[in-house]
Design a protein around this nucleic acid. Structure first.
Lengths: 146, 146
DNA sequence: ATAATAAAAGACAATTGTGTCTTTTATTAA
DNA sequence: TTAATAAAAGACACAATTGTCTTTTATTAT
């Protein structure tokens, strides 16, 4: 469904949000530990998110990634668009460039419904609402090590 | 959502079904013309489908691909499983290996609903029902050239 | 000012997905 | 039985995605 980049991006953003609520900035090493993601690759992805103003970052001592109040309210759909583009939200299920109401693919109608629901799900899920689940202990971003 | 392989596979299967209903076997060149897909790549994908008994093939003169009555009733989900595996139908939206009811990712519940609907959509759509739309002229597998 | 820190950026490597071309095998019409 | 046909199979080639490593830049505590 989503690319690896997107999966890491969402998980990282949620973790950063949770840490931000504790007034902490999160460093890459810390983030990757907690979401079980490859370090340098995730660093790149976070650069995309900062360029798109989805997360904030600060260099230097005591620096790291964090979210402003406004950024916290952003929907996961923004992360998907930034990493994977909008094909998932707009594209044809069978990959046809010219698929439309006038010239639909055989799956057009059914797929349209699904696509709209995916979009709605991601638009309705804010980063902070996801982080909230983490903090309440009924949400995980990696397998727990006991 | 689906891989290119899967998109071509579904489109090819639907076209073969439509031709089959006219008691015709479809050759690769013909198939690729009608679904706008790369020839040799599609040939490979059709090998996967025949190995999985989703389509039938016959070599030699007057040979080609066709569907038996039973194969015609198969759901598109079979094609997805054959080409892309079952990650889309079973996997975690955020790519967590260990995501479960007990240890869910923050998107678990919402994504579960979507995933089930995708699965249902593909299980409820038979190859022949898709081919029917083609034949009725309200379904296309490529941009029409006028 | 300096050293330590941490993100940004760039170069590169490995893997997977996609696509092309050629040879082989099976089938059938003649 | 032979020639023509069409799928199967195998060897590559190219591109995109994913992942690693190193260097640079900005920030801040001292």
């Amino acid at each position: 469904m989503f690319s690896k980049s997107c999966e890491y991006a969402i998980r990282a953003a949620i973790y950063i949000s949770a840490e931000s609520s504790k007034e902490k900035k999160a460093g890459i090493a810390d983030i990757c530990d907690h979401i079980e993601a490859p370090r340098h690759f995730t660093a790149k992805i976070l650069q995309i998110l900062t360029r798109n103003k989805i997360v904030s970052s600060q260099k230097g001592v005591n620096g790291g990634f964090y979210l402003t109040k406004e950024q916290n309210t952003k929907p996961l759909s923004d992360i998907v668009s930034a990493t994977d583009g909008n094909v998932l939200f707009n594209g044809c299920g069978l990959g046809l460039k010219e698929c439309s109401e006038e010239e639909p693919c055989p799956l057009h109608e059914k797929f349209g419904v699904i696509r709209a629901e995916i979009k709605r799900m991601m638009e309705e899920s804010s980063i902070e609402s996801m982080a909230k689940k983490l903090k309440k202990g009924n949400g995980f971003l990696r397998a727990e090590v006991f």
